[in-house]
Structure formats: structure tokens, C-alpha cells
Design a binder for these strands. Sequence first.
RNA 1: GCGGCCAUAGCUCAGUUGGUUAGAGCACAAGAUUGUGGAUCUUGGGGUCGCGGGUUCAAAUCCCGUUGGCCGCCCCA
Length: 437
Amino acid sequence: MATFQSLPGFREFYPESLARRNHMFRLWRQTATAFGFAEYDAPVLEPLDLYRAKSGDEIEAQLFSFVDKGGREVALRPEMTPTVCRMVGAKANALKRPIKWFSVAEYYRYERAQKGRERAFFQFNADLFGEPGPEAEIELIALLVQCLRAFGLGEEDFFVRLSDRNLWFFYLEALGLDDVRIRAMLSAIDKFEKLGEDAFKSYIEQFGPLDEGIKAKVLAFLEIKTLADLEQRLGSIAGEKLAARLADWRKLLGGLEAMGLGRFVEVDLGVVRGLAYYTGFVFEAFDRKGELRAIAGGGRYNDLVAKLGGPDLPAVGFAIGDVTLGLLLEARGLMPQLVQASDIYCVVGGEAERKAAFADINALRAAGFRTEYPLKDVAFGKQFKLAADSGAKLALIYGADELAKSTVKIRDLANRSEMEVPRDQVLATVRDFFAGE
RNA sequence: GCGGCCAUAGCUCAGUUGGUUAGAGCACAAGAUUGUGGAUCUUGGGGUCGCGGGUUCAAAUCCCGUUGGCCGCCCCA
């Protein structure tokens, strides 16, 4: 038992788990690149004020923050959004629109670790700046869906819940609620699933009694499951803002439908997303069985770039975490067993044969073939077992017989066939073999 | 930050009402096996029983504290 343990919520990645992590990173990068997003990176340590400015003082309790030796208040980044807003804001005028960026990075939050939640975790982050219309949401939700489908997850495994803070705002406004009550209502709606209908009804009266008719209308709004439902509910309510919003909804869902992704997206106005700075569409991805916490979340944040000192720049973004997605992939058997398989295993007889093998081993490795050999003398029989264990496709046999003839025996470990080639043709023969694979 | 359950080998676990030197399977290593395969058999290494204190002639076992894990609450950017 180790005297020194790793800190709570911080994971150590042994080769097998690092391979799984890299598997995720690889598919995320591949997918984002295919969507035309460019990768960037940024500092792990930031001024504490960056997060205070974005999320308020309460955020500090959830941060790994401290005073550095220069007396600066700093924090390990808990998310990428403020950083990327600063970066984009600083060069907004020089960047081609739309700005489509992504990153894969580690984040740190001082929270109690739970299933699906660690104190240090990785996120895939994608953001699109400079496009105010729902075209941006189409692009991002399509990317989100594809980032999950790339692992082999299907519509039976996950779905995206789509909501809209603007729609709520305009709707509640049309129902006659003032600004303060609208905000209270949004926070209540966020808790609706947990509270249940009765607790919800009393919760929303914390700023005073509320007309039963309004309560009923809010609850009915939460029932909405499709665009047709939404159009029907809003049909009786006049208002330019609501009409424009409805047009955006049609465009967004129509676009996703046209991409063939309609079956992955559900209208669910119960999604409001926390304290957030979100200003329009918001969305979250969940596993279908509802066993895990959110796989991904995001939305529009049109005010944040300006709030952090940049120009007015509309933006939409989302993040996928590695922890919950990892759990889902494990549960669905979609996390491949990524063993480090060799290409070639060299079976060596003794010291003289080893020296002969070394020259070839180095040449094979320089040519990019993953080549292994026993570091110390091992019985021949055991070496073939080691060769099989290594996952190598070929065994190169350097024995006394071969050395005498200046040849090497090459064994195809899959079909157990063997051939003998002159030493100077080993590399060429191996190249041919792997080229033909 | 709050509450519940848990902690024995790298992993999964056994360990009787407190009683000799804490065990098994898997994994790892060596041998059987000096030229051909994921097998088998034999052997071996590996433990401050999470850590600290207490009760006792005697503690893996009982008590207290602490650290860590899992689950839930708060939060979830």
C-alpha cells in the first residue's frame, strides 16, 4: 500500500487507461477536423478574476485557487469558455468568420468526486464565434452528435435534449412576468425534474403568489416534445419576438433533420442549464437509459466575449467530458481493448545471434515497425510464447543455423507458415508483408 | 460543505465467539523445456490487514479518530 496516495478525484492513467483516453481524444480530433474546426490550446493556470468575471464570486468555492509567489490570485482552469472568449476577443477583427475552434484539455474543479465526476477531467470543447443565427447551432449539434456516433454509439444509446432560454424569456414575458420573476422561474424550471410537480408549484411562489393559469401554462410548456407541439402552444400568443424565435427553431430542427440527425434530437424545455451565461438555445446530451449524468452540454452565449473585454461577438459552444462518456462506452462494450501490439518479435538464440539481430532490429525500428526482442537469454520455446503474447504478426528467428547461413527465418504467427530469407533482404521482405496487409 | 456504506497481496475475495508464522484464485516471475505458440504441472516473489490511537494476556477481528473509495444531498460552468 503506497504511503503517498494520489489526491482525491485525480486519476492515474496506466497504459491501458491511457490507451482508452487516447482513443477518445483521437476520435474527437478526427471528427472536429472533419467539421472544419481548428485545434487550439491555452494556459492551465489563469487569473482568478477571469472566472469571477464570468460566473460571480460563488464560483471560487469550486475552484482550485491560490495565491502564487508573486502575490497573484490564480486558479487552475475549471473550463475553457472564458479563456477561449478572451483569445478570440483579442484577435476578433483578424480572424476569418465563422471562427470554428476546438480543444482537448484537462480541467480542475474543487468538488466532491462522484460517479461520473472527478476533480480533474478532460473535455472536448468546441465553439463557433461570429454567427448569430441558428446555422451555428446546426453546425455544433451536428458535431456533438457525430463526436458520439464516432464511437459506435447510436440513437438507442444517447440523445440530445434541446431547449431555449430566449424562448422561455419571451414566453414568460408574454405571460406578464417581470424580470425578477422570470429569472426565479428559470431556476425553478431547472429543478423541475428533481422537485416534481407539487414541490415545483410551491417553489415558484417564493417571490409571491402566482396565478394558477400561469402555473398551468408553464407546466404545459414543459410537456412540449416536438416542434408541432411548440407551434401549437405559441399559436395563440402574439408577439414578434416569439414569432422570430419560432422561425429559428424551424430552421435549426429542419437543418438537423436534413442532416439525418433528427432522431438524435428531442425538444425538452426542461433544460435550462444552471447559473449560466447562456442566452439562447441550450442543449445537453444524455444516455438513453438515464443512468448517467450529462455526457455533454452547451449552448449560445452571445454576451460573454464582450463581458470579458472583447467586441460584441455571438458564440455557441459545447463540451463533452471524458468521464461520463468513458462510463457509457464501457457499459455498451464500445471501449476497445487497446493492447500495445508489436509488429515483429525477434527470437534470438544466444549472444552471437543477438548481435546479428541487433543490426536488423534497429533498422526495422527506424523504418517504423514496432519491434521487440527478449532483453535477456530466454529458451526458444518460451520466446515463441512471448512472441504470441506480444501480439506481433511476424517472428524473426535468429538461430545458430540461420546465422551460419547468413539468413533469417520469418514466421507468420497467424498462419504459422515460415520462410527463410537472406539477411540483407529482411527489411524488404517485412515491408512487403505489412504493405500487403 | 453535509449524510450513509466500505477499506485484507497488483486484481477479485476468504479469514469462525478476539487466539500460533494472515490464506485462495487470477496476474507476475522461475523451472519442467538449448529450435516453434496463448496449455499443463511444480516452485517462487509479493502484506505495517489504509493510517494513528485505545481496550485486552492477545486485535485483520472490538472502540475512537483520521485518510481514501463508493453512493446520495448541495453544486454541476
